[in-house]
């Protein structure tokens, strides 16, 4: 979970792990998206993949794994003054329920 720039209270000491943090995404089965499952430390991405297999897929939980260094992820920030997602907040007409259709119209 990228926490760069996020206040973390007392825990602001420099990290002292020798291996960087990777975020892990697993595709549960064909037809599904890769989903974030957690993180782990590894020396490089190849080791991260192997570690991810052992940590997150011991019982056939996945058919494919992505790993990405946590510090390579750009995330929307909770401290934006204006909510980042406000632009979609007032556009109810983007939802099908906005439109009144008589009950007797079939297949809609």
């Amino acid at each position: 979970m990228p926490t760069t720039g996020v206040p973390t209270g007392d825990f602001t000491a420099a990290p002292d792990s020798s291996w960087p943090l990777f975020e892990v995404f697993v595709r549960g089965k064909r037809g599904l998206n890769h989903v974030h499952v957690g993180s782990l430390h590894a020396a490089d991405s190849e080791m991260a993949l192997h570690n991810a297999r052992d940590v997150y897929t011991r019982r056939n939980e996945g058919v494919s794994i992505w790993v990405v260094r946590a510090d390579e992820i750009t995330a929307s920030s909770p401290d934006e003054k204006d909510p980042f997602f406000a632009p979609s907040g007032d556009k109810v007409y983007r939802h099908p329920t906005f439109y009144d259709i008589p009950d007797d119209v079939p297949h809609m």
């Binding site: 996020v6 206040p7 973390t8 209270g9 929307s76 920030s77 909770p78 401290d79 934006e80 003054k81 204006d82 909510p83 980042f84 997602f85 907040g89």
Partner: peptide
């Protein structure tokens, strides 16, 4: 820590 701002909704 300084309070951060709003939240994603």
């Amino acid at each position: 820590s300084e309070p951060a701002g709003g939240d994603q909704q």
